[in-house]
Simulated assay, not measured.
Amino acid sequence: MTNATDITDEQWQRLYEAALAAQKNAYAPYSKFPVGAAFLMDSGEVYAGCNVENASNGATVCAERTAIGNAVAHGERRPVALAVVTNLEAPAAPCGICRQVLAEFADDLPILMSNPEGDREFTTLDELLPHRFGPRDLPS
């Protein structure tokens, strides 16, 4: 398991900047809540994504799921850190469905939650989604 102390300040900054840049491309005409996310993968590559809303609310895709989809489309499977940027004063955590998607790809994951002003809060997937259901729960 990688934890926040295993990620360098430079790597966190790189993730923050990628998530912030992605947030600027968010398509959020309904919620007015743009979100950017960026994953550092075990290869060292960074993949970003933003939320993409839809008039049919169920078709909306969160930034975290867009970012992991981007990584998977490039053949990546093992995230080692995640940064999420929202415009809230107190940085926001990934939503429930995103937490479940994260559990598909990581046993645990250090997560930086931030805003454009640079306020930062750290958490982990274990803290956000304890006792989660994941691939290890399915019979082989």
Rank of each mutant, 00 (worst) to 15 (best):
F133P: 01
L138V: 15
P94E: 06
Y27N: 13
P29K: 06
E10L: 12
F33A: 11
W12M: 02
L40W: 08
L102W: 02
D108Q: 03
W12I: 05
A48S: 15
A92N: 14
D126T: 10
R136Y: 09
R120K: 13
R136M: 10
L102P: 03
V84F: 02
E10K: 14
P110K: 04
C95L: 11
G49A: 04
G44T: 11
P116K: 05
D107P: 04
I111C: 00
I111F: 00
A55S: 12
Q13P: 02
G118V: 00
I68K: 00
P34Q: 03
E45I: 08
Y47A: 02
H74N: 15
Y27P: 02
M41T: 11
A103N: 12
D42R: 10
A81I: 00
N3M: 05
S56C: 06
A92C: 14
N3T: 13
R65Q: 14
C95N: 12
R78I: 13
Y47H: 15
A83H: 00
A59Q: 15
A28C: 14
V52D: 15
V80G: 07
L82A: 02
L125N: 06
T86F: 01
C95A: 14
T123L: 02
H131S: 14
G75M: 07
N115M: 01
N3E: 12
R136V: 12
Q100E: 11
L102H: 01
F133I: 13
S31I: 01
A71W: 06
N25P: 02
V101G: 08
V101F: 05
R65N: 12
I7Q: 09
E104Y: 10
T86E: 02
G134Y: 04
V61H: 02
V52M: 14
D119K: 13
A28V: 09
N51A: 09
A93M: 13
D108E: 06
Q100L: 08
A63F: 10
A19N: 03
D126C: 05
R120C: 07
W12Q: 04
P130Q: 01
V72Y: 10
D9C: 04
V80H: 03
G118Y: 00
N87K: 13
A81T: 02
A90H: 13
N3G: 11
E53F: 07
L129F: 09
T124A: 06
Y30M: 06
A73L: 12
L15A: 01
K24T: 14
A48G: 05
E89D: 14
V85F: 02
A71E: 02
V35T: 12
Y16S: 01
L125K: 05
E121V: 07
P110G: 03
D107Y: 10
E45A: 12
R77P: 01
L128G: 09
G36T: 09
T123N: 05
N25R: 14
N70F: 04
A38L: 08
P94M: 11
A48T: 01
A4T: 07
L82V: 04
A28D: 13
G134T: 14
H74Y: 07
V72G: 05
P135I: 08
E104W: 07
N70C: 05
